[in-house]
Simulated assay, not measured.
Amino acid sequence: MELNLAGRTALVTGSTQGIGAAIVLGLARAGARVGVNGRDARRVEEAVGRARAEAPQADLVAVTADVGTEEGAARALEALPEVDILVNNLGIFGARPALEISDDEWRRYFEINVLAAVRLTRLYLPGMTDRGFGRVQYIASDSAVAIPAEMIHYGMSKTALLAVSRGFAKAAAGTGVTVNSVIAGPTHTGGVEEFVYELVDRDLPWGEAQRAFMREYRPQSLLQRLIEPEEIANLVVYLSSEQASATTGGAVRVDGGYVDSILP
């Protein structure tokens, strides 16, 4: 199967590192023009440089904007007025005992993990429907279905994305635009390494720490290892393609079998 995204423009939010950076590279390699997004101009330019080093043919646009705010979303729209593929990857996470999560932290998780994606969808979806093609994706998590006791505020935000995705898919019905969420399982990123070491012995080598984390905190994973960001990106690239034209309104899993269900 050849996934050719030539002529398409994509925006990947929160894409200077981790899953977002892998998605940028995957889309660029498939031929798309891709907006690399982050709040810090230096980090955005560094991410663009790393992607071009791995894919010299990549057509990349630096989109320096805090899309967790209305002003930042407007700057992203100015940098990329027309987007065919919107990947709402921006998100924050962290462990916190349930009874210690403040009102402000609940609001912060909702505004960054959910409302930022809703706002960008409102900005870009009308253009997609007018042109008769579009792909909107929300990077969700196994935590949307199996709420982790150590970060229920994060789980709440990812559950909300599943509802948002399904709702906007209905709003785009019959237009040639598909809207899906991607349920990513426990993934190996720099941020997750730090998170793992918050929960297991910091003196353990990374290989042992990862296995201890999966054994104690994610024992239901059938993969029995952390997923690599490129594995998440592969699904995103497919969902962005013409070949995925009949997949919409779905919560598509790339979770290593973490969620113990036949359906999401």
Rank of each mutant, 00 (worst) to 15 (best):
I19F: 14
E198T: 15
L223M: 06
R33D: 00
R8L: 12
A47P: 04
G185N: 10
G249D: 03
T175W: 09
L80N: 01
A58H: 11
A32P: 12
V254Q: 02
L3M: 08
V236A: 12
S240G: 05
L90A: 07
E54P: 06
G167C: 06
G134K: 11
P264F: 08
M156G: 02
L123E: 07
S165G: 12
A79H: 02
L99Y: 04
G68E: 00
G191Y: 02
G207M: 13
R29T: 13
A51D: 08
S221F: 04
A41D: 09
V145F: 07
E198Q: 15
D59C: 08
G250D: 03
A79L: 05
T121L: 07
L239P: 06
V24P: 10
D66G: 06
T64F: 08
A28N: 14
G7E: 10
V136L: 03
E2L: 09
S241G: 09
G167A: 08
G35T: 05
L99K: 15
L3S: 03
S143M: 13
V118P: 05
T129P: 07
R75E: 05
T64N: 04
V12R: 03
V200N: 09
A41T: 07
D66E: 15
I92N: 01
V67D: 01
R218L: 01
V252H: 12
N88H: 05
V145P: 02
E193N: 07
G257A: 12
L123W: 02
I101D: 08
A246Y: 15
A74V: 03
A6I: 09
D260A: 14
R50A: 12
G134M: 13
N89Q: 07
Q17K: 12
V36S: 04
E242K: 05
R52G: 00
A6S: 15
A140K: 03
A244Q: 05
G250A: 11
